[in-house]
Nucleic acid binder design. Structure first.
Length: 401
DNA sequence: CCTCCACAGGAAGCGCAGGAGT
DNA sequence: ACTCCTGCGCTTCCTGTGGAGG
């Protein structure tokens, strides 16, 4: 009979798993001291009853943007009092209406703001800020997700003109570099009064972060230095995303526990990378709309066929490419198999662009040696893996007819 | 050189769902 | 509750582009 005490007493390399989880917020944020200082300087006027300039923060995923801002705002609240700032994740609050509603709800928790019109909510917000003379900081995380962002920014900046006292400042956070150009010029100049860039962590910075977390998360002597260095190096050459590095470490620990060994070595990190990459691919692919997946499956099928046919002739693996036209035909075949009406080739090209954006495929313009102008497609992940994931998702649909 | 191939990607327009305004 | 409007996903049509072939 299994028992909890038996399971819990199983030997493990972990001392505190939570430290390695992506939700863990460390006390100190190493290598972000300058950024944190500058953000603090940016918002500090609010403590002197002046309106801070808006701040715009750009940086790739896993560079510590959100953690740094949250860190600063926690300190800020200690000086300015509760209700002095408002953190909004725009993935959930993705329109002007929802953002304003959220702000009002933060300002007036007792008020049930559901069902009010935008004008009403806006009035309450202005009234509340004005009467209490608050210098409110609104943090808009993933600000690029807001549909009518120009309207939102206009509304918020205009409110400053209507306020008799107090003010609203915005901290916008995004990881999309192209995002700034999508704003109209007025919104841009108001949001980007003060602009910070968070650069990806370097290999040695990642190494320091990882070994600090490893000290807290693993039992002493269980994680090899070289394994930690490897995780840092693998991450640095890919993206510099600290969350990815931590995932590697966590997974490596889990693998060690599974094998019932007491040490994490390079081998476990290598295995962890394969596993984490598979997870990432799975998440990315299965979240995709149907026809994106079907296009991907078409491409994967072509790759598998091609490698079968050429294996005898040439041993040159991995140097295959597929033309856009071939892939469209393959996609059309896949559509017939699943009894889905196929999209037009024009729209198929948009799908290709989306897939490339997500890193699931890479494409190159055809150069010399090729007739016509086309794109040469290569898969980002192994064809068999992609085929498995997509077909798994579609097998349910197929059974239904 | 011109023409054709095999596409890329812009422009216009259409039907639909959901949100805003009344 | 009603219409009106807007954004979105998509098709159709079209022009542009870089090299192959004659």
């Amino acid at each position: 009979m299994p028992s909890f005490s038996e399971i819990l007493s199983k030997p493990s390399v972990f001392a505190d798993r939570n430290v390695l989880s992506p939700h863990y917020v460390p006390e100190a944020l190493p290598f972000r001291e300058n950024e944190i200082r500058r953000i603090m300087e940016g918002v500090s006027p609010a403590l002197k009853k002046e309106r801070p300039r808006n701040i715009f923060i750009y940086g790739k995923t896993g560079t510590g943007k959100t953690a740094s801002v949250k860190h600063v705002m926690a300190q800020f609240e200690r000086h300015a009092g509760p209700g002095s700032y408002c953190y909004i994740n725009c993935r959930m609050y993705n329109s002007r209406y929802r953002v304003i509603q959220k702000i009002v709800k933060e300002l007036l928790p007792s008020l049930d703001s559901m069902g009010f019109g935008l004008a009403m909510l806006y009035e309450r917000m202005v009234q509340e800020i004005s009467s209490k003379s608050i210098f409110l900081i609104v943090v808009l995380d993933e600000v690029d997700m807001v549909k009518d962002l120009d309207d939102l920014l206009y509304t918020l900046t205009r409110s400053n003109d209507e306020l008799k006292s107090g003010g609203i400042s915005i901290i916008g956070i995004t990881n999309k570099l192209t995002f700034k150009e999508q704003l109209d010029s007025r919104s841009r100049s108001s949001l980007c009064e003060n602009e910070f860039v968070f650069h990806p962590y370097t290999a040695s910075q990642l190494q320091a972060i990882l070994s600090q977390r490893a000290r807290l998360g693993f039992k002493p002597g269980t994680a090899d230095d070289s394994a930690i260095n490897l995780a840092a190096a693998l991450t640095a050459q890919e993206s510099g995303d600290a969350r990815y590095a931590l995932k590697l470490l966590l997974k490596a620990g889990e693998i060690a526990d599974e094998k019932a060994i007491r040490r994490i070595t390079d081998r476990e990190v290598e295995e962890a990378r394969r596993s984490v990459d598979r997870d990432i691919a799975f998440e990315a692919i299965s979240a995709l709309p149907d026809h994106h997946q079907l296009v991907l499956l078409g491409i994967a099928n072509l790759f598998i066929d091609k490698s079968k046919n050429t294996r005898l002739a040439s041993s040159e693996e991995e140097d295959f490419f597929i033309t856009s036209g071939e892939a469209y035909e393959a996609y059309a075949r896949v559509c017939r198999r699943y009894r889905k009406p196929r999209r037009s080739s024009r729209w198929y090209r948009e799908y290709l662009n989306d897939l490339e954006m997500l890193g699931l495929i890479t494409t190159v313009e055809s150069g010399a040696g090729m007739r016509g102008r086309t794109r040469l497609i290569r898969l980002g992940y192994s064809a068999a893996e992609v085929k498995r994931i997509v077909e798994k998702g579609f097998s349910i649909i197929e059974q239904k007819g």
